[in-house]
């Protein structure tokens, strides 16, 4: 009896030890980190697609079985249908060109002029100090609230949308560039002066490259702000554009068309975001990672 129970006890501890060994073995399997990274990336991509698919499928399903009211929520298949019709028979394409055109021009102007403004503060401390409160004040104004005035000033055409997109972006970039200018290493400037550099050379060889990452970091925020500016401009008064289309669809209670507008704007926004990612790479080209 005694020896029997002892045997059982022994075999139990044996098994426990074996399990432990197995576990240790499993942990110590050598894995290539690059390979693991690649596998994780693939799984993540699949997961993302799956989640997107589930959301769209659920949207379609819930509106069909009446859990969501399709009058308000529309549904994916109707949106695609309505979108296709307005693309082939309506003005969706020209509206899209109008909106993206105003956004991109406003974004480029705002980023460029904002950068120049921000960088200009390096040249004179006095000028920088005098401007400071006005820059902050202009930043504090809700620019969209000025939209009606701007539309009156610049008309209901293309230019008022460009101006709004510009106003939304210019100060953000200027502030980013200003921070960049303040972050320039004084010793680097000193080193360049000791090599006989003129101020303009210090500006082009040290200040601009030092501030570039700051300017670049504002691009992604700016493209979304520029789009918002353009759409508000179109809401207020316009003959074309996705914003006008959404407003019009809302007025005639065509919710399907409103959703088409929202979907198209989202797609446009994603596309322009990818554009800024490319622009970032371009502007920081030839730098170490």
């Amino acid at each position: 009896m005694n020896s029997g129970s002892n045997n059982i006890a022994v075999s139990k501890t044996d098994r426990l030890q074996e399990n432990k060994l197995l576990r240790v073995k499993k942990q110590s399997v050598i894995e290539d980190p690059a390979q693991r990274e690649r596998r994780t990336r693939h799984i993540a991509l699949l997961g993302r697609i799956l989640v997107g698919f589930i959301i769209i499928a659920a949207w379609e399903l819930f509106t069909r079985i009446g859990l969501l009211d399709s009058y308000y929520w529309s549904n994916p298949s109707t949106i695609v249908q309505t979108g296709w019709t307005s693309l082939t028979e309506g003005t969706l394409l020209t509206d899209l060109v109008y909106t993206s055109g105003a956004t991109i021009i406003g974004f480029i102007l705002g980023t460029f002029i904002g950068s120049l403004l921000g960088l200009s503060f390096w040249w004179s401390d006095l000028y920088s100090r005098i401007s400071e409160p006005y820059i902050s004040a202009f930043n504090a104004i809700p620019k969209l609230a000025l939209a009606p005035v701007l539309v009156i000033m610049f008309g209901i055409g293309f230019s008022s949308k460009v101006i709004l997109a510009f106003m939304m972006t210019v100060i953000v970039t200027a502030l980013a560039a200003k921070s960049g200018v303040h972050s320039v290493d004084k010793d680097l400037e000193k080193m360049l002066f000791s090599l006989g550099a003129k101020r303009s050379q210090v500006f082009s060889k040290v200040v601009i490259p030092s501030a570039m990452p700051w300017i670049v970091s504002s691009l992604k925020i700016n493209i979304a702000l520029a789009l918002a500016g353009t759409i508000v401009g179109e809401f207020i008064s316009s003959r074309q554009g996705i914003g006008r289309m959404i407003l019009y669809a809302g007025q005639i209670m065509d919710t399907n068309l409103v959703w088409v507008g929202v979907v198209v704007l989202s797609a446009l926004s994603i596309l322009m975001y990818l554009g800024t990612v490319w622009l970032e790479r371009f502007l920081l080209k030839g730098r170490p990672q």
Binding site: D185, D187, L188, K190, M191, S194, L195, K205, V206, P209, G286, R287, P288
Partner: peptide, 12 residues
């Protein structure tokens, strides 16, 4: 010629 304590190479 003047060389400072830090190397002051431009990182970019």
């Amino acid at each position: 010629g003047y060389m400072l304590q830090k190397d002051l190479l431009l990182p970019w």
